[in-house]
Amino acid sequence: MRLKCPLCGDRDAREFHYRGAAKLMERPEAGAGEAAFYDYVYLRENPVGANSELWFHELGCRAWLCVSRDVSSHEILSVELADAVKRGQA
């Protein structure tokens, strides 16, 4: 599998570390309570088709990436820098 890092271009999947669902970007506020954190830490959608994920270009530019991947075909639909997405610039 290959991922197109916005900074490094088309790279082999072995350069990347897979973290999990992109939901991890939305950390609750400190006062949101245990239930909100429980949901954030443990509960995940299990979609067929496109899934938003976080990947880390650990053996490259060390950018955290927001990747949309079709989990049934492994097709990579989009790759964006996570910090740009978080800042609403993507």
Binding site: H17, R19, L24, M25, R27, L54, F56, E58, R62, A63, W64, L81, A82, D83, K86, R87
Partner: peptide
């Protein structure tokens, strides 16, 4: 280091 990168880029890029 990976965790710090995660916190800095994904949680608090500001």
């Amino acid at each position: 280091l990976r965790h710090l990168d995660f916190c800095a880029q994904v949680l608090w890029p500001d």
